[in-house]
Design a protein around this nucleic acid. Structure first.
Lengths: 221, 221
DNA sequence: AACTTATCGTGATAGTTATCACAATACCCA
DNA sequence: TGGGTATTGTGATAACTATCACGATAAGTT
């Protein structure tokens, strides 16, 4: 038996999430066992990459056979921490916030939206989802800490992103997912992830502007 | 004079997009000149990283002084291909689609939404933005090719993501930004980017599940 | 039980990306 | 005009990540 402290690439974690997605689809199609080749085909990742990713966490397959679809799905969920429920709050119920609240996927995959907040008085009280009424920002700290929210989703405009993040930290959330186009600052003990939709589009524009993507002429004096 | 064919890291492109964002904010604050240190402070990237990123494309700064805020912004826009207008169409006007259509940022930064489509007959004709009426999916190929759409944004459910992508390809778009939780397949000459909101959340869950993020115990037989 | 086949798990290797340290140089001021 | 200061641009290096190639091994077959 060997035990080693090793580093897990962030890219690996991202892929694990997509593996779950593909595995569930394959399971729906009736595949009880998948090879790394089939799974790779399905989610457009090389078979070796999949095996490597999984090997960081243990041995989940059977040589000569493959992986049991259902149990591998469960194993990956455990790895990602999706075997428990993460109480989550969302701040800023604009279109994007609404989209996330209605995203049934969350409910089925380890997250539970326990509260939603907005600064627009006209929205307060609106039921955005079964049993979930929009609350004023002023209630954020009180409600989120009472509900023991662990994750806060920020879908407010850039101008109020930082103050929103501050409130979430005060309310005791451990992680923040920020969709506002502003890099907020949080204490070291808070985990932060920024999602920049604009960057994704800009990346596309860059690739389209260059015939040979990822290559370019470098000019120096 | 030296000229070399070198590879640009994808991460560099992503950062360039955020540099624009930070530079515009600094410019609003009255900073006419920024050092890599100040810019780095503002967008949470190391100064050396910023200089390296820029050095792939040329020399934009003045030693001992820094970078002219406005002109650096323009230079980066040129690098990313944002100095021209990208005609863009969006398919699937749910909450997320709506959010993107109303995102004024796009209009101001190189993209123009030329059409929006949805399969729900009840939505057809609705004006989602000044002068932009939702059209039926059946009109996609005709309208998008007439408008010479270069980019297609997919915000439909996973089940119709592939067929939507196929239509966009048929309409002649060169790039697709896919928000559906399904990895669509496109011909080699089409540039594709997948945005997985669920993966971002899952990543957060993983980090929260592990005290020391990015490190873990490895167990082997 | 030996042989064959399929497919995993992983050490070694190649490739990519970030960091570092410092030479280069523009501006300021005496 | 020369010396000091600030800050860039970049080669070298370190760190990280993906790919490859193959040994290990489970199941089926004769």
């Amino acid at each position: 038996m060997k035990q080693k402290d090793i580093k897990i690439p962030e890219a690996t974690i991202k892929r694990l999430s997509t593996y779950i997605n593909c595995l569930e689809r394959l399971d729906d199609k009736g595949c009880q066992v998948v090879s790394s080749e089939l799974l790779g085909e399905s989610c457009q990742v090389s078979p070796a990459q999949i095996r490597k990713d999984l090997s960081y966490f243990g041995e989940f397959g059977v040589r000569g056979v493959g992986y049991a679809t259902k149990s591998l799905t469960e194993e990956i969920k455990v790895i990602l921490g999706l075997d428990c429920i993460w109480p989550t709050v969302l701040v800023g119920v604009g279109h994007l916030g609404h989209a996330l609240l209605n995203f049934t996927f969350f409910r089925e995959h380890g997250y539970r939206m326990v509260a939603a907040f907005d600064s627009d008085p006209g929205k307060i009280g609106t039921e955005v989802e079964e049993g979930l009424h929009i609350q004023p920002i002023e209630k954020l700290v009180e409600t989120a800490s009472r509900e023991k929210a662990a994750i806060g989703i920020v879908t407010v405009p850039a101008s109020s992103a930082q103050s929103t993040a501050d409130l979430l930290v005060e309310a005791g959330v451990r992680g923040i997912l920020n969709f506002a186009p502003f890099k907020v600052r949080v204490p070291d003990n808070i985990t932060l992830r920024n999602v920049s939709i604009v960057s994704e589009l800009d990346n596309l524009a860059y690739l389209l502007s260059n015939k040979k993507p990822r290559r370019r002429l470098k000019k120096k004096k």
